[in-house]
Structure formats: structure tokens, C-alpha cells
Design a protein around this nucleic acid. Structure first.
Lengths: 199, 199
DNA sequence: CAGGGAGGTTAGCGGTCGTTAACCTGAAGG
DNA sequence: CCTTCAGGTTAACGACCGCTAACCTCCCTG
């Protein structure tokens, strides 16, 4: 998989703009004409690239869940043996923060429009999400062995909520710069996890 | 304001069911017929109680933001002088957790459907939200005086994300019970705030 | 016991939206 | 040079949805 430097294809443009619009106004709140207009073609021209509006949302959500899981697996494999569980957890957090900061609209969609999918697609996305969560839970339980599994799972969901809050705080972009924000989020996530263990 | 023991009025039933449906399927994803059916009347009967579908959403969102702010102000006033800033922060966290656990659909709506409001209503809601955030920021800065204001504000938004994650974790209801969940969320919120200060 | 308002009902209008149909065009390939 | 096809276009259809109109039926009250 080479690092892409090519110009984005029309199909990719459409997906990107659709993600932005869906995140801004909701799946049902955006018409196909608007999506088309956002990439310079109009309305039904989209059907040369996608079988329907639903298919765009499906591809977006499956893509998100897939790359989150793939990235997490890669980070876990890279750290295997050579690093302790704390470093692995840090790596997972870092990956999730990068995603939350770079693909804000996708993060928004990811927990907002899942129910608008066809049954089969929704099942797939949920399965990918579940694997992602369980991967985190495993690592968290290595770092905090005294934490019972349900608490660890709740904690993971809550930290996702914390990290995924980025869309809310960057209205004017007047926040302390990307790296400082990432560092703050990272520390807060670790601080939240550290509170799993009572006292 | 007496504690209400009376049966809920038809109007309140409608608001409650509308909140649930809007949270489940999005504002545009729910038809007035469905809302009517959820309270046992059908379709246009709703217009005896509300001027339109938008008005239901507006009343819900203004109500949420208002009661969050009112509750926070009350807690702040009660603790004035008699308690240190840490206790005030704990009280704010407790209030927000109660709300997140008891009114899950409203919490979901609150940061999801704001853009579907008329301009004037949206402005009002945003102003209430801003006051709520600033109230938290003030308390947080008392507890952590070394934290710069932008960091404190980002932290507050992130902790809201953490606390508002409750809708995600209660799919089957097989989580460790309400009080244990509340305690875990509370500890995590404090742990996250504690990480504001570097090192 | 008349009458009126609160709170429903069903029928239907007007607009919007996803999708399809039919047609056009420019560039690549034999 | 003719063909083909990818990638557009506009027109239009059918479904759905928010809302209004018109009507009906209790129940309360003077």
C-alpha cells in the first residue's frame, strides 16, 4: 500500500464531501443534489459512481470502522514483546487521537448515523467496532489488572467519548494548536483510565 | 417548584416520545405520524399541542440546556463559601452524571440536532450552553489554577464527551448497576481533569 | 339542556427527495 | 474515421412528509 500522492479520484471527492455534509446536517438532512453540487456535478450524476445514497454512507462507515481496527491491530503487533502494556495503550490512544483530529466528520458520523444502514452493513460495522473495543479492553486490563472487565469496557467507551469530543471544541480553530491539543487529550485519557482502580 | 407526582400530561408524553424517537433515528428520520402513534393518537392530532414538528425539537433543546444551566447555578450557589472548589466541581460532575443517566435521549439530542433549529432558538440554546460551559471552566480553573484558560475549556468539553458517552454503553443494560456506573464516571472525570496540569 | 371548546379523526394538498430514463459529449482504440 | 464507453446532462416519476381543512365527539358549564 503506497503512500498516496496522486490526485483524488472523483469517487474519493464524493465520499469526502458526503462525509462532511452528513456530519453537518445528518444523513436525511442532505439531498443528493447538494452532494453533487459539492463536487461540481449535479444530482443524478452521482449514480455513475454509487448505486445510491445509502451506499455512500455504508462505504464511509465501513471504511472508518475498518481503518480504526486495522490501525489498532498494526500498533498492537508492532509493540508485541518490545514494549510494555503501558506503551501499547499510549500507542492506541495516539492513533485514535490522530484519527479524531484528522477526520473529524468521519468521527462524527461513526457514532451518529449507524442506524441508517442496511441490516447487513450495520452488522458488519458493529462487528468491526466491537473488535476495536475488545482490543482496547484487552490492553487496558493488562495495564490495570485489578479492574473487572465490565468496568474496563465502560471505561473504554467513555474514553472514546472523551477523544471523540474534538468536533465540539474547534469551532473557530482558536485552540492551542494541534500538537498541544493532542497532548492534552492524551493526558486526559490516561488520567481517566488511571481512575478505573478504586482509590 | 413542587416535586411532580401527577400523571404526565399529553403534551409531556409527546415531548418524551419525540425525544426518544429523535435520538434513535434523527430529527429528519422521524415522521409526525410515528410520534403521534407513540402516544396513541395519530398524525395531525399533534398540532393541537404544538405548532409544528420544529417546535417540539426546539422545546426539547431549550429545556435541556436550561435545566443543565439552572441545576449548575443552584449547585454553585449552595456550595458558595461552605465548600472548597473541589467539592463544587464534584457537585457539578454529579449533577451532569445524573442527567446523562436519567435523560439519555435528551443528552443525545443535545449535541446532535442543534443545527435543525430556527436561528433564534439555536442562538438561545447556544447561549445557554456557553454559560454552562463557562460556569464549569470557572470552577475548574479554581481547582487547577495553573491551567491556562483554553486548556481548561477544552478539558471541560472533553469531559462532557466522556460523561455523555452513557448512551453507548447501555445496550443490554448489563452494566454494573447505576450507582457503580455513576461512581466510575465520576472518578474518570476527576482523573481526566487532574491531567490538565502537565506532569 | 343548549352550546362551546378541547382534542381527536380522515382526506388531501404541495413540496421535496431518491431514483430512473433518455440523451449528449469528448477522448481513447482499433 | 468510426465506435465505444465513461461520465456527464435534464426531465420526470413516485413516494413520502409536514401541514391544513373539514368534520366529529365528548365533557364541562351556565
Amino acid at each position: 500500500m503506497a503512500t498516496r500522492t496522486d490526485a483524488p479520484t472523483r469517487r474519493e471527492q464524493i465520499l469526502k464531501e458526503a462525509a462532511r455534509l452528513f456530519a453537518e446536517r445528518g444523513f436525511h438532512g442532505v439531498g443528493v443534489d447538494e452532494i453533487g453540487a459539492a463536487v461540481g456535478i449535479s444530482g443524478p450524476g452521482l449514480y455513475r459512481h454509487f448505486p445510491g445514497k445509502d451506499a455512500m454512507l455504508a462505504e464511509l462507515l465501513v471504511g472508518i470502522s475498518g481503518s480504526l481496527l486495522t490501525g489498532a491491530k498494526r500498533r498492537l503487533a508492532e509493540a508485541e514483546g518490545v514494549a510494555g502494556p503501558e506503551a501499547v495503550l499510549d500507542s492506541l490512544i495516539e492513533g485514535h487521537i490522530d484519527f479524531a483530529l484528522d477526520d473529524r466528520p468521519l468521527i462524527t458520523l461513526h457514532d451518529r448515523e449507524l442506524d441508517r444502514l442496511r441490516d447487513s452493513d450495520r452488522k458488519l460495522v458493529r462487528q468491526l467496532q466491537r473488535q476495536y473495543v475488545e482490543l482496547w479492553v484487552g490492553v487496558v486490563r493488562e495495564v490495570y489488572p485489578s479492574a473487572p472487565e465490565p468496568a474496563a469496557r465502560s471505561a473504554v467507551h467513555s474514553v472514546f467519548g472523551l477523544l471523540n469530543s474534538t468536533p465540539h471544541l474547534t469551532r473557530p480553530g482558536a485552540l492551542p494548536g494541534r500538537s498541544a491539543t493532542a497532548a492534552l487529550l492524551h493526558r486526559m485519557a490516561r488520567g481517566a483510565f488511571a481512575a478505573i482502580e478504586e482509590h
